[in-house]
């Protein structure tokens, strides 16, 4: 906390220093290491909105089903999971109806994976526009997060519909916990996690492209070692459970399930470590991204 505070003080200090001087912009080969440039992002919030709108429009135009596709994808995955893992393999779901268990996991996983996948190619996808005009570069990956967030909202609606169905028509006993109120925090954490990792990867891959191969199948593998997507944390054998609980995404989904479905694992240790890990990933991602952004045109 103290570190963040002193960092902000130095940020404000450096901003004031520039203001005192005659020049508004100084271009030099070296830049201060600590430079989040969030003010610049805030000033270009109009652009963020327009980018997001552009990408949504691009998805819908000339499709028949439009946003309905967002329902189908998690629904089909959930049905397959329910049949294969819940039915054939008979894996535990903490006593939660398998449909709800898998759908909850899917909704968060899809959001995380999409943000990670798409932001990890930010520089490659935007090289033609980045090469011709300067604007706050972070706007491009942030618009990916916003876009995915909209899909997430639609899929969460699907979850709520099925959730209500189970309560009203199946009479499934469900106990709400106060952790349900953490939902906004959970959503933000999921987005920032994917963004932070994506920013680090896109920065590293401008020079050495090898990592892109890793990302495409790595994200799929990641799903299997993230408890709570396919199997609950409580099923992990005790000697690995602590390690698995430190997975920032596991803590998020487990907290969600505990809050809304009444089963799952909530612990301040896991949740707190998830918050810290996410913030570190995000800060590191932004710093590396800003450092790479300056000269990436010469190397990509």
């Amino acid at each position: 906390m103290a570190a963040i505070l002193s960092f902000y003080q130095s940020l404000i200090h450096s901003l004031n220093k520039v203001k005192d001087q005659y020049w508004d912009t100084i271009l030099s080969p070296t830049r201060p290491f600590f430079q989040l440039k969030l003010g610049e992002v805030w000033n270009s919030r109009d652009l963020l909105w327009l980018f997001t709108k552009r990408d949504i429009a691009q998805l819908y135009k000339q499709t028949i089903l439009g946003p309905l596709w967002f329902f189908l994808q998690p629904l089909l995955t959930t049905i397959v999971f329910t049949v294969v893992f819940g039915g054939i393999a008979a894996m535990s779901t903490d006593g939660i109806p398998p449909m709800l268990f898998y759908l909850a996991g899917q909704v968060f996983w899809v959001h995380f994976a999409e943000v990670l996948n798409k932001t990890s190619t930010t520089f490659r996808d935007n090289q033609s526009i980045f090469g011709k005009v300067y604007f706050a570069r972070l706007i491009a990956p942030l618009s990916v997060v916003l876009n995915s967030l909209i899909k997430f909202g639609i899929q969460l609606t699907l979850f709520v519909i099925i959730y209500l169905y189970f309560i009203l028509f199946e009479g499934t006993p469900i106990q709400l916990h106060w952790q349900a109120a953490l939902l906004p925090v959970l959503i933000i954490l999921t987005g920032l996690m994917g963004l932070g990792m994506g920013l680090i990867i896109t920065s590293l891959t401008t020079k050495y492209r090898d990592l892109t191969f890793l990302v495409t199948f790595g994200v799929q593998l990641l799903m299997f070692i993230t408890p709570s997507v396919i199997y609950p944390l409580s099923e992990v054998s005790p000697e690995y459970r602590f390690l698995a609980g430190l997975n920032p995404l596991t803590a998020v989904i487990e907290t969600f399930k505990y809050g809304f479905l009444g089963e799952g694992t909530f612990s301040w240790l896991y949740f707190g470590s998830s918050v810290v890990t996410t913030l570190v990933l995000f800060l590191a991602g932004v710093l590396i991204f800003n450092k790479t952004e300056k000269n990436f045109m010469d190397v990509i």
């Binding site: 080969p29 980045f130 005009v133």
Partner: peptide, 29 residues
Amino acid sequence: KVLSKVTGPTLGKAYLKGRVGSMLEVGTG
């Protein structure tokens, strides 16, 4: 490109006063 911040300089410095608009290509974006 250097003055419009698209790419950084290797050596030296450039100072600019005021908002910079660049048109390196028509119809970017």
